[in-house]
């Protein structure tokens, strides 16, 4: 449900970056979405389409690249892939509170048309 807020924040960044580069139109946007982020890709895509209307990013193609989760066990020092509801280390059973990746939402590139 908060995909609308995320899309609004995203479009603000995109418009600003496009302006800084004197771009007239944004054709494509690439986003890294952590698998632990509670984002539904289809809803985010729809929200993005809606908030982009009337901005230089209207009609831009949004590509969402999923980043798999990774955790570091403080108990034994091993890295492992947690499930969203289970951060127990498969090697020693300790609970890891360190998430190395998978909870990010990062704008990674824009493809723009310049005058």
């Amino acid at each position: 449900m908060h995909e609308m807020s995320l899309a609004a924040a995203l479009i603000e960044d995109i418009v600003r970056i496009a302006q800084e580069h004197q771009a007239i139109r944004v054709e494509a946007v690439e986003l890294h979405v952590g698998a632990l982020k509670q984002v539904v890709p289809e809803i985010l895509a729809e929200a993005f389409k809606a908030v982009a209307i009337g901005t230089p990013a209207e009609g831009a193609v949004l590509t969402q690249i999923e980043i798999p989760p990774r955790s570091l066990c403080q108990g034994c020092g091993q890295e492992f892939v947690p499930s969203p509801s289970d951060f127990l280390c498969p090697y020693c059973g300790a609970l890891s509170m360190i998430t190395l990746q998978g909870d990010e939402l990062i704008l990674s590139s824009l493809t723009c048309a310049t005058p």
Partner: peptide, 13 residues
């Protein structure tokens, strides 16, 4: 033109 960035979308919040 492709512009590469690393921008946390929730940074403003």
């Amino acid at each position: 033109m492709k512009i590469n960035v690393v921008k946390n979308v929730l940074k403003a919040n």
